[in-house]
Amino acid sequence: MPEAMTAPMGDGFEQAARDAVYRAMFTRRDVRSHFLPTPLEDEVLAQLLLAAHHAPSVGFMQPWNFIVIRDAARRAEVRDLFLAAREQELPAVVEERQALYRKLKLEGICESALNICITCDRERSKGSPLGRWHNPEMDLYSTVCAVQNFWLAARAEGVGVGWVSIIEPKALKNLLSIPEHVTPIAYLCVGRVSEFAPKPDLETHGWGRRLPLPDLIMSETFGGQGEAPLKSTASRLNGFVVERACAADQRVAPAVPQREPPNEASALSFNSRNFDDASASLASQAGSGTWPAMVLK
């Protein structure tokens, strides 16, 4: 990383750790078409769920739940919901892009090792308005933070994740018996993959491109001009950091790591971690569910 991105003091990470954080961010992909039939170990899945469970949440409300979906028949039903929703969405796509839309691979519901539906319990912090009095949707945003934690941890473990957003929420709630006061936030396809694509699929297929960051930086007010030095620095770092992260990723073989069985002294052993009660409970239950999850673009 360039010197400008290093922490000059305090308890910042060492250089290798910082590089790893940025690599996970810049090489994370929404996976749809590279899933392997390899099962996902409960130890790894539990670690990903622990990462999600330690996401920031407004008012420390922790509104999330994680429905693990393994059953092939149930996942096929979810895929049927996706196919129906895709046909409903198609007319909203401009006519000249409909052919491309039909060709895009937008889900891996049945191909992935398992699915996970991450939900938001909107009554979990009932009676505690901290952080929600003026912004009641903060529980939804907090749950999205859990999704991002899960996704980045998965990338670090060599696990692919695809977020399926083309699903009608009420139909999904009925299929997964989700209560009325609980909102499904993300339906994720999760599993080992043969590769992580060098670019997002939608960029590769010409659906869109990443917007230049300097064009999105404003000064003082929305649309405010200024911050020329910051914009110049952002533009310079973009090429350096992204290229470095992707180059490092290409030097690494497809990730299906051979993990040593954890022992009592291992950093990967749940017994050696100082978890709080909620985390320990989550770790003991991870991977034991019988429900799948969703996929996104």
Results as ranks from 00 to 15, higher is better:
residue 127 G to L: 03
residue 128 S to P: 00
residue 128 S to G: 03
residue 130 L to A: 15
residue 133 W to I: 12
residue 133 W to G: 12
residue 133 W to V: 14
residue 135 N to Q: 13
residue 136 P to T: 00
residue 137 E to M: 08
residue 137 E to H: 10
residue 137 E to Y: 09
residue 139 D to H: 10
residue 139 D to V: 03
residue 140 L to F: 11
residue 143 T to P: 02
residue 147 V to F: 03
residue 151 W to P: 00
residue 152 L to K: 01
residue 153 A to C: 06
residue 153 A to E: 11
residue 157 E to Y: 08
residue 159 V to W: 01
residue 160 G to P: 06
residue 161 V to H: 06
residue 162 G to Q: 03
residue 163 W to E: 06
residue 163 W to S: 03
residue 164 V to L: 12
residue 164 V to M: 12
residue 164 V to H: 07
residue 165 S to P: 00
residue 165 S to A: 14
residue 165 S to F: 03
residue 167 I to K: 05
residue 167 I to R: 06
residue 168 E to C: 04
residue 170 K to E: 15
residue 170 K to C: 11
residue 171 A to T: 00
residue 171 A to C: 05
residue 173 K to V: 01
residue 173 K to W: 02
residue 174 N to H: 11
residue 174 N to K: 13
residue 174 N to R: 13
residue 176 L to I: 00
residue 176 L to H: 07
residue 179 P to E: 04
residue 180 E to F: 02
residue 180 E to G: 03
residue 182 V to H: 03
residue 184 P to M: 09
residue 187 Y to G: 15
residue 190 V to D: 07
residue 191 G to E: 02
residue 192 R to G: 12
residue 192 R to I: 00
residue 193 V to Q: 02
residue 194 S to I: 03
residue 195 E to I: 13
residue 195 E to T: 14
residue 198 P to V: 00
residue 198 P to R: 06
residue 199 K to D: 15
residue 201 D to Q: 14
residue 202 L to N: 10
residue 202 L to D: 08
residue 203 E to I: 14
residue 203 E to H: 08
residue 204 T to H: 10
residue 207 W to K: 10
residue 207 W to D: 02
residue 210 R to H: 11
residue 213 L to C: 08
residue 215 D to K: 12
residue 219 S to F: 13
